[in-house]
Design a protein around this nucleic acid. Sequence first.
DNA 1: TTGAAAGCGCTAACAA
DNA 2: TTGTTAGCGCTTTCAA
Lengths: 363, 363
Amino acid sequence: MTHPSGTASQLGIIACRGSRTALATPRQRRGSQRVTMGDVARIAGVSPSTVSLYLRRPDEVSEQRGQRIQAAVERLGYLPNTMAGGLASSRSRIIGVLVPTISNSFFAATLDTLEKRLREAGYQLLIGNTEFDEAREEELVRSMMSWSPAGLVMTGFRHGRRTVSMLLDSDIPLVEMWDYGQPALDMVAGFSHYATGQLIARHLLERGYRDTAFISPSFSRDVRAGERYRGFQEGMEQGGARVTMRELGGATDTAEAGALLSELMAERPSISAVFCANDMVALGVMFECQRRGWEIPGRLAVAGFGNLEFTPNTVPPLTTVEPPKYEIGRQVAELLLARLGKSDAPGARQVDLGVRLITREST
Amino acid sequence: MTHPSGTASQLGIIACRGSRTALATPRQRRGSQRVTMGDVARIAGVSPSTVSLYLRRPDEVSEQRGQRIQAAVERLGYLPNTMAGGLASSRSRIIGVLVPTISNSFFAATLDTLEKRLREAGYQLLIGNTEFDEAREEELVRSMMSWSPAGLVMTGFRHGRRTVSMLLDSDIPLVEMWDYGQPALDMVAGFSHYATGQLIARHLLERGYRDTAFISPSFSRDVRAGERYRGFQEGMEQGGARVTMRELGGATDTAEAGALLSELMAERPSISAVFCANDMVALGVMFECQRRGWEIPGRLAVAGFGNLEFTPNTVPPLTTVEPPKYEIGRQVAELLLARLGKSDAPGARQVDLGVRLITREST
DNA sequence: TTGAAAGCGCTAACAA
DNA sequence: TTGTTAGCGCTTTCAA
């Protein structure tokens, strides 16, 4: 579980309220039978199929009847039954989206713009957490497919064998996001984490750092951090430099990063730069430096990944890589809508959104 | 738009990749007609309704036929059509959830546990961003209701008039979350932001601070921050102390907070403590103090709200209030499931989850 | 442009 | 325990 309360090294805790009350229900059930299209038709004096047509393509219905239908809809507060419509037409306006965890700020940002763009186009998001678990992913794909979704969005390229075959068997448009450069099932919107690692390597080499470290959450939880490491490590090695790697154990990146840094520097004091797998880890490293009075970048240079909200304001401002977290959402929506709009759309489109290196004073 | 690129005061930017390739589609459409329950029945040599029964209540079907059905399901890769099922039974296993923005880390955390608990119980989440906009909220409620959801979850108590009447007209179980203490439509799981403000007021008064400030994102975007301010303000006033309030303009809390603090302290140097509407603002304030060489809490005490991942590790560790962000998700799920499970469940339940004051060295 | 009729794939009485 | 029979509320031919 990700609940942080256990980790807080609080000096004092005061509980405030915490009551449970069962009140009389303030909601009065204004008993309501569901209003159907037939009811609207009766009130408007037309046939149900005319109502259906009006609702879907208003301009194919005469203006006079259209107005009568509109009035009836409003008077009755008619809400179409989407499931009936979906069943009859055998398609739905649902897009299923799978992320490892919604609460990861990167994915949350992507979901934000994705939801926005797709809602504007009349689609709705069915969201599931895979929790980095292939079995859960398979189960989720299965239950999303049972909705006959208009499209599916998944994170990364790693899926179970059975999941892949379900995906291939259907012809539901699929976008794999947040990664790029490996064999994909259909469409892709993301960027190369390997190239990101290389980008930072090049930067640190240019600035003359030769003895470096990489601190990261566990690769088993964050596959993409592992890819960044690969890129970084190979890049540094090619430049004749050295990388010491350390994985964090727990869930809270910032807290543990400080401790790990101390350990690492005690073992190998010659390290002069650290690339952190994300900005939260970098923040923990910077706090540790502050506590020890180590100058950044004088004693130790620090670089991160994410360009989180606070990174331009750390002391000193943090060098980092900005991933296209919002653009990914937009691009996924674009790909999906293009495919859904016209069947003559080009086949699988794979979009590399790239990243930006933001050089600040910490390196 | 929330895209941060404009704000980054980067010294240098290097774009890395950014290509668009239209590859030949690697997915081969293994043309697939949808397998129906009738197909399964035929293969298993039973009637469709027996298959239906088996899928819903396996123990009411004889073991022999059960196995034949199971085998047929697996052989055909049968996936039930949820829309047909939902239409026939006139209920769905969908829960609609409305949050202001998914990318807010508090709501994202809640969504995380909410999704987890509800998925375990066989429900799926349809998620929508209201973007603090009543019209959008109404539109979303409308489209969620058209799915005949099993339940609805909304953030806070503020809804448009028409939204409220739609909600009251339906008898869909509803939970309003992340707030407590105001008139609710049905069930509630949250905590009092007013009480939270008072809690911090009491704490600062105890420590002897009398001239204080409150720095916050705009109340129009964050209604609940406004409630915390009310509680804080009234609490301090009753203790004979003073509060100067400042609202931030932009979207990035950390960045602007530093500038605002400088301004504020220039105007009124006697201020000795700041309560920040959230930990991100507090972080910005702490960075500013670090830059100016102001000691915390000697020159200025700082308190936050959120107990975000990094707050135990700031220098010095930050006093803050921990909201039950994960518990809210769990509790919302509990309320919904209790109501959905048995119709004899008690009426509207309103649960105050409370908060914890975590006293650290910054005050 | 409008309406009648036939399903979409399942669930839920009910009868066997 | 199993099968038969009607729908659920829409969309979609097809004819008028």
